[in-house]
Computed example of a mutant assay.
Amino acid sequence: MSVVIVAGDGRWPLRHGQDPVDLLAENGWSGDPVHAALGEDGRIEVHYDGVALDEPSAPVPIGQGQHATRVHQRVAAYAVVVDEDRLLMSRLADWVRGAAGLWTLPGGGVEPGEEPLDAVARECHEETGQRVVVDELVQVQSQHWYGAGADADEDFHAVRLIYRATCPQPTPARVVEVDGSTGDAAWVPIDGLEALPQTWMIGMARPHVRVDAGR
């Protein structure tokens, strides 16, 4: 599934390995993400509240994995869910290559033909057993790396849609999905986050983890 960035009257496909911020700047725009939706052509459209720049920025070079046997862009959606002073988190299973045992936000890949909002709600339930109400899109993360994938050396581009969500009726967190990539789930005190082994995603999303966010 591919991504299109939208701002003003402009629509631009996100190239493999490219950060949406760089793509906007190339086309003379800056702004914040406001929502994402499945387009009529089956691509995910990420809309920005854009401001026109005085002049476009020069394109940012994107390296390529010289020995990669698979080029893969993965679009995924995750939720920042706060209940009082706790953050809902999931821990990656021990078999997950390169990130085994790390804590992260609940979420996962957007399936072909699936709305991102539906993907967030589905993944939160599968990974933590919680029914959540998905609110606004607060961040789009882009991470590009080369390395060993599940079955090949990959040139991998992760595009992550980070939403804020609420849980009207919190229950003890538990993993629902069988044989998935989640090994555990928990409501974690926000003041103890830094002590946990965690993914790169958490640090990037940390400004949106607020004690008052779930009230």
Rank of each mutant, 00 (worst) to 15 (best):
D54M: 07
R43D: 11
H72Q: 14
E111P: 00
A99I: 06
M89W: 00
E114W: 09
A93G: 15
A52K: 12
A25H: 14
D22I: 07
Q169C: 04
C167Y: 04
V159F: 01
Q141F: 08
G101H: 05
S90W: 00
D151C: 07
Q139A: 14
D32Q: 15
L14N: 03
V51Q: 11
D32A: 13
L24Y: 07
S142F: 03
A195W: 00
A165C: 04
Q143V: 13
A121G: 12
E55K: 14
G113L: 11
L102T: 01
V75G: 02
V81N: 05
G113C: 08
S90Y: 00
A185C: 08
P13H: 07
L161I: 03
A186G: 09
E127N: 02
W103N: 02
V4N: 09
L193V: 06
S181R: 12
V140T: 02
T104C: 03
G214E: 07
E115I: 09
G98D: 07
I162V: 15
E154D: 13
A68Y: 05
D19H: 15
R74N: 14
W95M: 00
L137Y: 02
V4P: 01
G129A: 08
L92A: 10
V138I: 10
R15F: 08
L196P: 01
D118M: 07
G107K: 04
H144I: 07
L102E: 05
A58Y: 08
Q141P: 01
A68L: 04
R91G: 00
V75L: 13
V175N: 08
D184H: 13
A121L: 08
G28L: 08
Y48T: 02
V209D: 09
Q198N: 12
L38H: 11
A150N: 14
G8Q: 09
N27R: 15
A52S: 09
D41V: 10
G17F: 04
E127D: 11
P112R: 10
M89R: 01
V134T: 04
V6F: 04
D135K: 13
M89T: 02
A37I: 06
H125N: 13
E26V: 11
A93V: 05
G42H: 10
E136M: 03
A77I: 05
L24K: 08
A76M: 12
E26T: 11
S57P: 00
G108K: 01
H47E: 11
I190D: 04
R131E: 15
R43L: 14
G214R: 09
Q139W: 13
H157C: 04
L105M: 05
D22Y: 13
D118V: 10
L92G: 00
R131Q: 13
V46Q: 02
Q66S: 14
